[in-house]
Amino acid sequence: MALPWQSSSTGLHEGGFRREVDFILYLMSRGDLEESLFLIERLKASDPVRADSLNYLEGWVLYRQQRLMASAMRLLNVSESSPVYHKSRLFGAYNLAHSGNTVRAASELTSVRVNKGSMPAAMKNLQMGGVALLRRDLDTYLLHQEEFSGGFHVMALEERRMHQHYETIRDNPPRSPFIGGLLSAAVPGLGRVYAGKAPEGIVSFLYVAALGALSYDIYRGKGPGHPLFIVSASATGIFYLGNIAGGAAAVRRMNNEFRYEIDQRILFDMHIPLRNAFN
């Protein structure tokens, strides 16, 4: 893909701007990203074409530095007339999605202009499907999924995988922290087992059982009014209540872990086709 300063129609082949951009590209190819950014920030854009070039370059350097929000802000400033318009907009929206700003990512993707049937159109659709899954908006995802054609090899595999993610999300609804707490109240540690954390559940059970046994031992020897029994029984009660709260928290944690793992897979399958198509 031709960049603005590589296009003869932009008139940027002449002059210091083009030479400076060439040097910046050289630095970027060496991985000298801080140096590239330093030089880009010192360049002034005297016309919209140069502004596009600088926005794109800065956005791309920031993307390579994994400063995704800052990168998105730059890439989304690239105008429609630029040859790197689609790349910039799609990467900008991806950066927003990766940073957790899925609402804005969806709105930016909606505003990307594409020709029907083109590769950017299919890419936009895949990205919008991915963003819908990240938002757990399964109905919207299905609308986009209908347009998955498998016709572009750069994203055919990811389109199939995106649907697998959809099925995983559909088949694994979040578990209830309330049930986790309830189970731990019935049998200490059972809420954690319900959350898929059996070893934690066993440890939790052993703690409460050991304290309970200790209290019983003291109760047996000293009776219910003895200060030692009051202290140990109180400790047992605190651990028991903590075990209930822990059961609910374990379920919440499991839900979050599951969500994070699926989100990472979705983002991966949004990212790979972008890299393959536009690099």
Partner: peptide
């Protein structure tokens, strides 16, 4: 020695 066997093991 005082017969608190469970407490002896745990504490």
């Amino acid at each position: 020695l005082n017969g608190y066997y469970i407490a002896a093991v745990i504490a």
